[in-house]
Design a protein around this nucleic acid. Structure first.
Lengths: 141, 141
DNA sequence: CCTTTTTACATTGTATACAATTTAATATTA
DNA sequence: TAATATTAAATTGTATACAATGTAAAAAGG
């Protein structure tokens, strides 16, 4: 690798980490109204798409393990947004189901993407570049 | 904003968050040898550059607050990598100084950037695009 | 100069993250 | 099929993150 490229890569890992945190901070006030944290919101997005899915599959989608998901899902259960039950056909697995309240919350969350998007002043070309590179990296790692 | 752009932006926040976490996971085995976590490594990078700096300035550079830094800096102090002392000219401020051991650790860490870089199969153009867009976003947020 | 405000750090409380281990169930294979 | 290996969750322990609050010091301003 060229020296320049090495230097540049050095200036990428930290900004990526910082940017990720700053974006999550922007979500926080919007999600407060729904009584969700960012990670809980990610899980609910999966649930809005799937309605029924097990813990393992949620983890695969969100790059999270049971150590993170188990307590988080218990909190969503307390809020009556989901239910948790063992899979009778495979007792190792726990099936997560969205509730009526959970589904209803989707409407309340519907304006969040646009609000967050409006904070990103990127043009279409930049969005596509960023999308392309990030997904390429995620596949590599 | 166009619908397409909105959809794309939706597929950006989460991948950014996931990518950031995956990259940090790649650092972990390398940093284990130095008995540092990723965040501790970021602080040490600041110390290698500055030698002497106060907590507030570290926080500004790394987007971290005293709630995160105070306990982390105490751990680095226990490891004898830094010292902490009140600024006599402004008793509100705490001055962090790197120690000999702390400086010595820089050599051990010198091959980390190249090792991480080798996991990024991006060409120069992509590196520059990513760098440009991330820094643009960080400035906006 | 004295009151008010701001600043820097520490503390408290909540919520991730994740490695490592444990437990129970299922799959594999000798 | 009995022993072994693998898998899915849960648990434990450590380390962030950060909002909110507390505390003490410094700055501002009347």
């Amino acid at each position: 690798m060229k020296d320049d490229a090495l230097k540049l890569q050095n200036q990428l890992c930290f900004p990526l980490y910082a940017l990720s945190k700053e974006i999550i901070k922007k979500y926080t006030p919007l999600l407060d109204e729904l009584h969700l944290t960012y990670t809980q919101y990610l899980v609910m997005m999966v649930m809005w798409e799937k309605q029924t899915i097990n813990v393992k599959a949620i983890g695969d989608k969100l790059y999270l393990d049971s150590g993170t998901l188990t307590p988080l899902l218990k909190k969503l259960e307390v809020q009556r947004l989901i239910t948790r039950q063992r899979d009778t056909s495979d007792e190792r697995s726990v099936i997560i189901q969205i509730t009526e309240s959970g589904l209803a919350l989707k409407e309340k969350a519907s304006d969040i993407p646009a609000k967050i998007g409006s904070m990103f002043n990127l043009n279409e070309e930049e969005l596509i570049q960023l999308y392309t590179i990030i997904h390429k990296l995620l596949k590599q790692l």
